[in-house]
């Protein structure tokens, strides 16, 4: 499978970008030229404005005279931690709900899936904003808020597939030879859902990264001084006309990471075609 992925140029590009950003996040303390929170006296011009990219500060400095490159490298940690944690949680919640509803059927399914429909009626960002405004956000609260709005599509897809699987003859056969619910779910249904979880686990990270960046840009995501690509733009947006690198460098980073996960997820989807699996 990996070989097939590597032969697809779009997927390869995605993988390389993800690996590069992941390595930068892991090696941040060694890779970053300066500590991300250090304010340099020489990091601001005589008029107190941020410095443009130059030999000392490669990508220039921000409004407080901090090194932008170092903040971007540490910001990769925030994006990836939230991306993985929030989306992982969303996939788990969605899978659990979809699986239970699809397997149990009847009233359980009706109630759970009507609730899913209901959640679909809320615009993700607005719901996340309301939740973030209610629980004053830390890194993990932001991840939780994003997970709470992003599980919905996963639940729908998993539900449809589980329903398709439950009606198969081999499940009937399992029951006939006395397999319990737990065994049927874990040994005979869940394995068929792994491709879907994998595809959503990848595509969903793109959505999550964008949502975190947007919340942080609106000032209710990850709070400064913890650097996040979104809050770097939030802090510096007033300088966009005179110091555009302060907006467009983190902006390019967000785009690259979201694009990479979208390309990889799309390639995985073509390869595994999980939507076919459920129909059996």
């Amino acid at each position: 499978m990996l070989r097939a992925l590597l032969r697809n140029p779009a997927a390869l590009f995605g993988l390389v970008v993800i690996l590069a950003i992941g390595l930068a996040a892991l090696a941040a303390p060694w890779l970053a030229p300066f500590p991300p929170d250090e304010q340099f006296f020489e990091g601001l011009s005589l008029e107190g404005a941020p410095l443009p990219p130059g030999p000392q500060f490669w990508l220039g400095t921000d409004l407080l005279g901090r090194d932008l490159l170092s903040r971007l490298i540490y910001g990769a940690r925030t994006s990836l931690i939230i991306g993985l944690a929030a989306n992982g949680t969303a996939v788990l919640i969605g899978t659990a709900l979809g699986l239970v509803a699809g397997y149990a059927g009847g009233w359980t399914a009706t109630i759970l899936m009507r609730f899913t429909d209901l959640m679909m009626a809320f615009p993700a960002l607005l719901l996340a904003i309301t939740l973030a405004a209610i629980f004053s956000p830390s890194l993990w609260i932001v991840a939780l808020v994003i997970a709470l709005v992003n599980w919905v599509q996963v639940a729908r897809v998993i539900y449809t597939q589980t329903r398709g699987l439950v009606e198969q003859d081999y499940i009937e056969a399992c029951r006939a030879i006395g397999a319990g619910h737990g065994r049927i779910l874990s040994h005979h249904i869940l394995p068929h859902l792994v491709p879907t979880m994998l595809v959503w686990g990848t595509l969903g990270i793109a959505t999550t990264v964008l949502l975190e960046a947007t919340l942080s840009f609106l000032g209710i995501g990850v709070r400064p001084p913890t650097p996040s690509w979104g809050n770097i733009i939030f802090e510096n947006q007033t300088y966009f006309a005179t110091a555009p690198w302060l907006v467009f460098c983190p902006g390019a980073a967000i785009l690259a990471l979201a694009l990479a996960f979208n390309l990889l997820g799309d390639a995985l989807n073509d390869l595994l075609d999980p939507l076919q699996q459920g129909r059996g």
Partner: peptide, 14 residues
């Protein structure tokens, strides 16, 4: 793909 991966606030500022 680029269009659906671009953060709207960055696109707006751009």
């Amino acid at each position: 793909f680029v269009a659906v991966s671009a953060p709207q606030f960055v696109l707006g500022i751009l």
